[in-house]
């Protein structure tokens, strides 16, 4: 029971991270029908920017651990969001009208480019986050100790997701994003500036991804320039699991995937951990191709 509970909370924390990254995939896919392969590398970038800012500015020493990390997260989100906007301008906007496949290849190119930029700046070794930023303590929950870090990660990701959900559902800008996702042409006719919407999507998605990168750095303590690939693939799996283009779907998919993976690694085999996620994906797509929360849409002829 103890082990099950620990794995469950661990899976939820990791799942929260997956969900944050998955939101970036699913929003971009919803509006542009494009798999943004570079998204995983924006996540890596977030982790590295977080490390640089953390060590160079010593915010946590000056204004306390929690507010320091909070300000740090905001700076990381702003920077990765900015890179996301630049990426969209440079690699995707010129290909808006071209076949889907060209955009996919351009996205792969962007991914290779970003990954190697990170490698050239920081080097190919593992980098380590300082260990003493947030207090290492365990909080008793249902009589079992849970590391504080897990709770913070899960709560932060839930808060961010809730904020995003309210933003998308309740505000006018959010309505514009949903409209552009349904039909860009019609949205344009209704006076929605679709270019602005896409820019916004490329600001929010990478910002959330960057925040996830910072979380991974704080949670695991070590980062590497290639980690964006595997996190990106898992997060994309999560997005599909929940039904791609569907924002609550990405959240549910991320959490479900995180838990399945953690429990699978604990009870089946740690060596097959990465394979479990993909097996789940294949099964879901075979049984329910539109994902858990996706709606079945009739094919347009």
């Amino acid at each position: 029971m103890e082990q099950f509970f620990q794995q469950l909370t661990n899976g939820l924390a990791v799942g929260g991270i997956y969900a944050l990254i998955a939101l970036g995939y699913t929003m971009v896919y919803g509006v542009m029908k494009l798999i943004n392969f570079a998204h995983g590398d924006l996540f890596t970038l977030g982790a590295y920017l977080g490390l640089t800012l953390l060590t160079s500015m010593a915010l946590t020493d000056r204004i306390g651990a929690f507010s320091g990390v909070l300000i740090l997260a905001m700076m990381v989100m702003a920077l990765t969001g900015l890179v996301g906007i630049i990426l969209e301008r440079a690699a995707y906007r010129p290909l808006r009208e071209s076949p889907r496949l060209s955009a996919v290849v351009s996205a792969l190119g962007a991914s290779i480019f970003l990954q190697n930029t990170v490698m050239l700046i920081y080097g190919a070794k593992f980098h380590f986050y300082p260990q003493d930023i947030l207090p290492k303590m365990a909080i008793p929950l249902f009589g079992m100790p849970v590391p504080l870090m897990r709770i913070i990660i899960l709560l932060t990701s839930l808060v961010m997701m809730a904020a995003l959900y309210l933003f998308i559902q309740k505000t006018q800008v959010g309505t514009a994003i949903r409209a552009a996702a349904i039909d860009q042409g019609a949205a344009r006719l209704m006076g929605i500036d679709v270019d602005k919407v896409i820019m916004l999507v490329f600001l929010i998605g990478p910002a959330l991804g960057g925040a996830a990168g910072l979380m991974v750095g704080l949670y695991y303590g070590h980062i590497n320039f290639t980690m964006g690939w595997i996190y990106g693939m898992k997060a994309f799996t999560a997005a599909i699991l929940g039904g791609i283009g569907n924002i609550p779907g990405a959240m549910v998919g991320g959490l479900v995937l995180g838990v399945i993976e953690a429990l699978g690694a604990a009870y089946i085999s740690i060596a097959w951990k990465d394979a479990i996620a993909f097996c789940v994906l294949i099964l879901i797509l075979m049984i329910r191709p539109t994902g858990l929360l996706g709606e079945r849409v009739a094919e347009k002829v």
Partner: peptide, 20 residues
């Protein structure tokens, strides 16, 4: 040297933009 994959990635993007 190390930057060759960087150049490669950039070439892929440019290629798709200019000769789809």
């Amino acid at each position: 040297a190390n930057a060759r994959m960087l150049v490669f990635g950039a070439a892929m993007m440019l290629m798709m933009i200019f000769r789809t």
